[in-house]
């Protein structure tokens, strides 16, 4: 099939950007979306132009490196997949496809379609872990975890940190991302001892990075390639509320003692 492409080009973080139009011809419907961009880039390089820069790595939907806002949707029109798993059979011959980077103040553009998502790493650094050094753990089966709880934790842990939730949200909120990590640990007994500090520190880091607030539109859940549930945000809110209450109770206990 033949396609027209409208792609955001931007030299670097400081320069302005603009849409450029390109054409690709004879694309197989079995070709993946990123392979279609490979074909475009080969074409550009051959004709002496600079290729379109985009992030990608594993190309099997798990590393979370690929992004792209395709025809107004993060990761394109198909549900529950990343851009690298999107195939051209989802488009029609003659279509015009508009491709943009993630749009959020917290994710500055590096070049063309690449953005800087280090804010996500910073949020994890603020508290997205259980404090355990290598070597001191007890036997793995010493603490049984109910299956339904472990399954819910796994559902949340499936987040790939791609940032589609932020891109989909009109407020550029990172609540789905943060809530997935908070939930994964909140649901496991191992995660409880630090639950209060974790949620407070992660939310603080999220706010500092400039992500917007959640207004429950649900766009993040609808566009998440791993179908992370909105209920995690409810859990995040509860954990956050608890952390305030707990902190007050703790303080009171200390004073009383």
């Amino acid at each position: 099939m033949d396609l027209k492409l409208k792609i955001w080009r931007q030299k670097n973080a400081k320069s302005g950007g603009r849409f450029e139009k390109y054409q690709v011809k004879g694309i197989s419907p079995n070709c993946s979306f990123l392979e279609m961009l490979d074909i475009l880039n080969e074409q550009l390089v051959r004709s002496g132009q600079e290729p379109v820069a985009f992030d990608h790595d594993c190309r099997e939907g798990i590393c979370g490196m690929c992004s792209l806002y395709i025809n107004g949707k993060p990761h394109g029109p198909d549900k529950a997949i990343t851009t690298c798993q999107l195939h051209m059979r989802k488009f029609k011959d003659g279509d015009t496809i508009t491709i943009e980077p993630w749009r959020s103040r917290a994710f500055p553009v590096i070049r063309d379609l690449m953005v800087d998502r280090y804010a996500f790493d910073r949020i994890i650094q603020a508290g997205g872990y259980i404090s355990v050094n290598a070597g001191g753990a007890q036997d793995a089966n010493a603490m049984p975890v109910p299956k339904y709880q472990a399954d819910l934790s796994m559902d949340a842990a499936a987040c790939i940190g791609c940032g589609a939730c932020v891109a989909a949200c009109k407020n550029a909120s990172a609540m789905l991302f943060v809530s997935a990590k908070v939930s994964q640990f909140a649901l496991l007994p191992q995660g409880r001892p630090e639950a209060v500090e974790r949620v407070r520190n992660m939310v603080k880091s999220m706010d500092e990075a400039g992500f917007g607030n959640c207004t429950n539109t649900g766009a993040c859940e609808a566009e998440c390639p791993k179908e992370i549930k909105l209920t995690n945000i409810a859990r995040l809110n509860r954990e956050f509320f608890n952390s305030k209450v707990c902190a007050e109770t703790r303080k009171a206990a200390v004073f009383a003692g």
Partner: peptide, 22 residues
């Protein structure tokens, strides 16, 4: 064996049986 212990302590959600064991 230490690896499994370490990962569970880190909060890796391994598959479990209904009794709660791995």
């Amino acid at each position: 064996n230490l690896i499994i212990d370490q990962c569970v302590a880190q909060g890796v959600p391994f598959a479990r049986e209904y009794g709660g064991l791995l």
